[in-house]
């Protein structure tokens, strides 16, 4: 147990954060809050990756004299680009939300669905 507890804690933290984000995404109706939830999920995945790249006793992967152990640079590179791509796609989602708001006048999921159903019903009767 002493082997399992501190050694796996980093994964558990990432999983708890991931699940909080997941819950926000599927249970909350507000679209902006859903995006925030997606961001939490995203950062949880980043933390997971970076914690895998850590080597005990290692330093940041910048070459210097007298240093032999470096952390793994590959996850760092992957996450570095993923963060910037993440913010770009987030802004795309936010743009869609603004557009939805101009069309429907609301950013609550259930209200949008109601409006949609009302529209459908109108089309059927006419």
């Amino acid at each position: 147990m002493s082997d399992v507890f501190p050694g796996l804690l980093n994964y558990w933290i990432a999983i708890v954060l991931m699940m909080v984000g997941f819950y926000i995404v599927i249970a909350q109706g507000n679209l902006i809050k859903k995006i925030v939830g997606l961001n939490i999920f995203q950062v949880a995945v980043f933390v997971f990756y970076i914690s895998m790249g850590k080597v005990k006793g290692g330093t940041a992967p910048i070459l210097g004299e007298g240093i032999d152990v470096y952390s793994n640079p590959l996850p760092h590179f992957l996450i570095l680009t993923a963060i910037v791509v993440g913010v770009a796609t987030t802004s795309l989602a936010l743009a869609l939300i603004v557009r939805i708001n101009t069309s429907f006048g609301t950013i609550e999921e259930d209200e949008i669905l109601e409006l949609e159903h009302a529209d459908d019903a109108k089309e059927e009767t006419s």
Partner: peptide
Amino acid sequence: VMDAVDVAFTEAAVG
């Protein structure tokens, strides 16, 4: 803390 200085840099500026 996990030695990923580049990533921390990006996250602070972006997030």
